[in-house]
Amino acid sequence: MRRTVPFAIAVAGLALTACEPYGDLRGFAPAPGAVDKLEVGTQSRDDVVRLVGSPSAVATFNPNVWYYISERQETWGPSRPWIAEQSVIQITFNDTGRVATIKYYDLKDARNITMVSRITPTSGKELTILEQILGNVGKFSGPRQQSNPGAPTGGG
């Protein structure tokens, strides 16, 4: 009895710790205080890269907008991972290349985007399987005979 109680407690403790969710950090991880050193209107793009690092993404239609994106995913047992924390820092530069604005976004600012499931129509005729199989029957002939085979290539 004295040996089974500690063993049962140890097994229960291991079982409980095995069910604890674990996290995985992905994306941008700034050095502590690096983003706080940025000042609006004084620092250039090179200063931002030196202090914070290269951006995770640059806006598609405006190269003056940089994004630093990070997220922490958690998983519990065999379930699919979910996003527990998300952080996006948006740095906008003015026309002279100086920091114009710094904005912070988190998970509550995120929006779900549904993919468009349209199919692009193609020109032409839709063929059935039978038309595809029988479509080339009779279109092929034997090897073609050339009327002028060219000069003989014998040794010489």
Results as ranks from 00 to 15, higher is better:
residue 136 N to T: 14
residue 9 I to T: 05
residue 96 T to G: 02
residue 33 G to D: 14
residue 152 P to W: 08
residue 105 Y to S: 07
residue 75 T to E: 10
residue 127 L to Y: 14
residue 78 P to T: 13
residue 104 Y to G: 07
residue 81 P to N: 12
residue 148 N to T: 06
residue 106 D to C: 02
residue 70 S to Y: 02
residue 149 P to D: 03
residue 38 L to V: 05
residue 38 L to N: 02
residue 11 V to F: 10
residue 46 D to H: 06
residue 95 D to T: 07
residue 129 I to K: 15
residue 107 L to C: 01
residue 75 T to D: 05
residue 16 L to D: 02
residue 137 V to F: 07
residue 2 R to K: 14
residue 17 T to F: 14
residue 92 T to R: 13
residue 92 T to V: 09
residue 35 V to G: 00
residue 83 I to V: 15
residue 106 D to N: 15
residue 69 I to G: 01
residue 25 L to R: 11
residue 152 P to V: 06
residue 8 A to V: 14
residue 78 P to E: 13
residue 75 T to M: 10
residue 56 S to T: 15
residue 66 W to I: 02
residue 96 T to V: 09
residue 73 Q to A: 08
residue 83 I to D: 10
residue 105 Y to R: 07
residue 140 F to M: 09
residue 97 G to H: 02
residue 32 P to G: 05
residue 71 E to Q: 09
residue 56 S to L: 09
residue 51 L to N: 03
residue 59 A to S: 13
residue 57 A to R: 14
residue 99 V to I: 13
residue 116 V to R: 09
residue 147 S to R: 10
residue 93 F to T: 03
residue 2 R to F: 14
residue 51 L to M: 13
residue 59 A to N: 13
residue 115 M to D: 13
residue 121 P to G: 12
residue 43 Q to F: 06
residue 21 P to K: 02
residue 103 K to S: 11
residue 103 K to I: 00
residue 67 Y to I: 03
residue 19 C to V: 11
residue 82 W to N: 08
residue 29 A to Y: 06
residue 145 Q to P: 00
residue 3 R to P: 00
residue 133 I to D: 10
residue 130 L to R: 15
residue 63 P to C: 04
residue 64 N to P: 00
residue 127 L to K: 12
residue 57 A to I: 04
residue 134 L to T: 15
residue 16 L to W: 14
residue 52 V to G: 01
residue 40 V to W: 00
residue 138 G to I: 06
residue 132 Q to A: 11
residue 110 A to V: 10
residue 3 R to E: 08
residue 6 P to L: 11
residue 127 L to W: 13
residue 117 S to D: 14
residue 129 I to E: 15
residue 114 T to P: 02
residue 145 Q to L: 08
residue 5 V to T: 12
residue 3 R to G: 03
residue 50 R to M: 05
residue 97 G to N: 03
residue 77 G to Y: 06
residue 110 A to L: 13
residue 48 V to R: 01
residue 128 T to L: 12
residue 67 Y to D: 01
residue 141 S to Y: 04
residue 90 Q to R: 15
residue 23 G to K: 05
residue 83 I to A: 08
residue 124 G to F: 11
residue 20 E to G: 01
residue 64 N to R: 15
residue 4 T to R: 07
residue 19 C to F: 07
residue 140 F to R: 12
residue 33 G to M: 11
residue 81 P to W: 10
residue 120 T to Y: 09
residue 140 F to L: 11
residue 48 V to H: 01
residue 143 P to T: 04
residue 108 K to H: 12
residue 144 R to F: 09
residue 42 T to P: 01
residue 64 N to M: 08
residue 104 Y to W: 12
residue 65 V to I: 14
